[in-house]
Simulated scan of single mutants.
Amino acid sequence: MGMNRTGIQMSPLDSRAMQEVEPAIVSSDGVDERALAELRSDYIANADALGSVPLPGTLTGAVTVGVSMLKGDSPQILLDKLGERLAFERTGTRLYDALITKCDIMLTEDMSMTIDDLEQIRADEARHFLMVADAIESLGGDPTSQTPSADLVGVESMGLVQVLNDPRTTIAQSLHAIVTAELSDKAGWETLVALADEHGLAEMVDSFTQALNEEREHLALTQTWYEEAIGLTYGDVEIDDAASLLQAPE
């Protein structure tokens, strides 16, 4: 609790004046937002796409993608989602770098989370990044290019990066952002497993399923640590056993 003066209850006279809106700017149904909606509609109707999946930069890549498309597959969708995962795993690695730095200063013995736990998860994220880069190259793609979905998750994750790197945020607040990232990461790997299976890429299905199980483990751990940090409960999830909590049935 502190001297938070952001709410209107802190100044009854001023809050009353703020709510006395001039009739000229209010329609019979409330504030008229039709003009703003029309402006947005015009931008939407005339906007370019967020980006495109790049053409393969090598002859081998072009042949690989071309053969796949002739077979009726959609390799551009898989490559786009691989680019998305690549971008997010890179960001995930940086999120854990930031959390480790914060915990070096702020972590107490009241939590079951340790720096070693965080470093292991950070290593998993970095390994997943390299795995996805290899997968993109095996399909003839360029892992250094930014696909539309990679662009999208880059924008989505900007807030998470800001939270973790803000020196004012607590460990609990940082873990809230980490749990948000892990939820998204789990969903992303589930999509990749399904896409790889649809394209008959058995080796990718196996490696992506392993990554998915590790992300489920990360999610179970970070949720436990977050609950500890806000005093909701005190968990004893071990890093080697957490995957069983969210393991999907065979």
Rank of each mutant, 00 (worst) to 15 (best):
E20Y: 07
E119K: 15
K71N: 12
P23Y: 12
S207C: 04
G200E: 07
L107R: 04
L13A: 15
G141N: 10
A177N: 04
Q76I: 03
A98N: 01
L245F: 07
T58E: 04
I105Q: 08
V63Q: 12
V65C: 03
M1A: 10
S145V: 07
D142H: 06
I77M: 14
Q76N: 10
E109F: 06
S174L: 06
D236Q: 06
A172N: 10
A47M: 14
K186C: 15
N213Y: 00
V161M: 12
M158V: 02
V132H: 05
V163K: 09
L36C: 05
D116R: 14
I230C: 05
Q19N: 14
L99W: 01
M158G: 12
R122T: 02
G30M: 13
D116Y: 08
E22N: 15
N46I: 03
L164G: 04
T91F: 09
A242G: 08
D240W: 02
R34T: 14
S74I: 05
E20C: 11
L183M: 11
C103V: 06
W225T: 00
E156G: 02
V155W: 10
A172D: 10
Y96T: 00
D73R: 09
D42H: 12
G154S: 11
G2R: 07
M10A: 13
M131P: 01
G72N: 05
S145K: 15
T180M: 12
